[in-house]
């Protein structure tokens, strides 16, 4: 018969292993976000790394955002034309496209593209640094790795996603103009006048607020996954994958909440 000391103590749970783990994870995320705000507003600030991350996240995403924005503009215009033509209202295309692009498509498409490109990049990079002890090495060399790696990346995504959203919106409208110009021979001046006739500051502001929330979400979710990666290369892959999935999921949830809120005050 085995002695008590030979067996591992039985694991005890408050509710069940999975439910306990879920609430522990929520608490860990809360601590992570609280630490972010604590570290973001205390000196020293890593300006050089922040600018480097803005360059990596913003400038390096430009080709992808340009291409997707342009395609979204063309495709949405082509798809909307038949419905409007039925009512003889194809001249309303520029204002319809602008409302759709500014209110929903630009922030959403930009955030989803960035979640895929930037989120996976951050998740994999920090995850790889974690499992190869580079984050520990930073800590023992008296550098705060959270401030250097996490704060700079989260702030860079929060700052650059709105910039990319504005850019993506403009490119999508250019795509739309190209298609409308080809089909309806509308001049650029007429397109712009019609496009901005129905758009309000609330639309642009709510779009920017959405983009800021999306940017923060992508940065925080990706950094959290990467910073807590474990179990070697498998953990790095999981961190990158979860960073993208969680970011995209949260973006849709936030989109739904912000739209409800904006419609209530409109």
């Amino acid at each position: 018969m085995k002695k008590d000391s030979d067996t591992l103590p039985e694991e005890r749970h408050l509710i069940s292993r999975k439910i306990d783990a879920f609430f522990i994870e929520i608490y860990e995320i809360f601590k992570f976000v609280r630490r972010f705000f604590g570290e973001a507003f205390s000196s020293p600030f890593e300006w050089k790394e922040f600018i480097n991350q803005c360059y990596q996240i913003g400038y390096r995403s430009l080709p992808l955002i340009s291409m997707t924005g342009f395609i979204v503009g063309i495709v949405f215009t082509k798809q909307s034309r038949p419905s409007l033509s039925t009512f003889g209202a194809s001249s309303w295309l520029p204002s319809l496209i602008t409302i759709a692009v500014i209110r929903a498509l630009a922030p959403l498409v930009t955030a989803l593209i960035a979640a895929g490109k930037v989120g996976s990049n951050i998740g994999a990079e920090l995850g790889s640094m974690k499992v190869t002890e580079q984050i520990d090495a930073m800590e023992v060399s008296a550098t705060n790795p959270f401030k250097f790696l996490v704060v700079t990346r989260v702030l860079a995504t929060t700052f650059m996603i709105p910039v990319l959203t504005l850019y993506s919106g403009l490119v999508a409208m250019m795509g739309s103009f190209v298609n409308i110009h080809q089909n309806e021979q509308t001049s650029f001046a007429a397109f712009i006048k019609n496009a901005f006739s129905t758009i309000s500051f609330l639309d642009i502001n709510s779009s920017l607020v959405k983009a800021i929330c999306f940017g923060f979400t992508i940065g925080a979710a990706s950094c959290y996954q990467g910073y807590h990666a474990e179990n070697g290369t498998q953990g790095v892959g999981k961190a990158a994958n979860t960073a993208v999935v969680v970011s995209m999921f949260l973006i849709f949830i936030e989109e739904m909440i912000i739209v409800q809120f904006v419609n209530a005050i409109r």
Partner: peptide, 25 residues
């Protein structure tokens, strides 16, 4: 602290690795 895996920063050159603790502290 000399790590078993050396833990050099992959994205930096040797010069940048060595400058990192010095320029910060």
């Amino acid at each position: 602290f000399s790590f078993q895996s050396s833990a050099l920063y992959d994205s930096m050159t040797v010069r940048e690795n060595l400058a990192f603790p010095l320029s910060r502290n």
